[in-house]
Amino acid sequence: MALRHIATKNAPGAPIPGLFAQGVRAGPFLWTQGTLGALPDGTMVEGTIQDRTRQVIKNIEAVLSADEMTLKNVVKATIYIKNFDENFPLVNQVWEEMMPEPRPTRMSLGVAQLPANTDIEMAMIAYKV
């Protein structure tokens, strides 16, 4: 089975070009990189954690779209959240707003530090026959 890198200009690239892929397709599965709440040019979204969470999901949606998938193809998400007790309910609000039914499985973790001094990072796995 050949691995195929998925890339789009509609989402931020890897922090170190050539070191990471925005997404990797292996058979029917697509794995996205850990994605931050940054605009496609790499500028971090200002505002609230909800604003950055929306941008994270939009970025992942752009990577999925580059491989002809949507958020409906997502089967698993992993979410890293700073200040977990305070921010977990806020992330959940955006999750309910943006993720289609049936929602994928999910693992949410509280962390002390994330890249670019942000408060949210997310990675997803999608499936398409």
Rank of each mutant, 00 (worst) to 15 (best):
M1C: 13
A2E: 15
L3F: 14
R4K: 15
I6Q: 02
K9C: 08
N10T: 09
A11E: 08
P12K: 06
G13N: 12
G13H: 11
P15H: 13
P15N: 14
I16Q: 12
P17S: 06
G18F: 10
F20P: 02
F20M: 07
F20Y: 14
Q22C: 02
Q22H: 05
Q22K: 05
Q22R: 04
G23A: 07
R25T: 03
R25P: 03
G27S: 08
F29R: 04
F29Q: 02
F29A: 03
L30K: 03
W31F: 13
W31M: 10
Q33H: 07
G34A: 15
T35I: 02
L39Y: 14
G42D: 11
T43C: 03
V45P: 01
E46I: 00
G47P: 03
G47Q: 06
T48F: 01
T48Q: 02
T48S: 12
Q50T: 00
Q50G: 00
Q50C: 00
D51K: 11
R52N: 04
R52Y: 01
R54M: 00
Q55V: 00
V56F: 01
I57V: 11
I60W: 02
A66H: 04
A66I: 11
A66V: 11
E68L: 07
E68K: 14
E68M: 06
E68Q: 14
L71A: 06
L71I: 09
L71N: 01
K72I: 07
K72L: 10
I79Q: 09
Y80N: 14
Y80R: 10
Y80L: 15
I81V: 10
K82M: 08
K82W: 00
N83T: 05
N83Y: 07
F84G: 03
D85M: 09
F88H: 12
P89K: 12
P89C: 09
N92C: 10
N92E: 12
Q93C: 06
Q93S: 12
E96M: 10
E96N: 13
E97F: 06
M98F: 04
M98P: 01
M99Q: 04
E101Y: 07
P102R: 06
P102Q: 08
R103Q: 15
P104L: 11
T105H: 08
R106P: 00
M107R: 14
L109Y: 11
L109I: 14
G110M: 06
V111K: 08
A112G: 14
L114I: 03
P115G: 04
A116F: 09
N117H: 13
D119I: 01
E121F: 05
E121G: 05
A123R: 09
M124F: 12
I125E: 06
I125T: 11
I125Q: 07
I125N: 01
K128D: 05
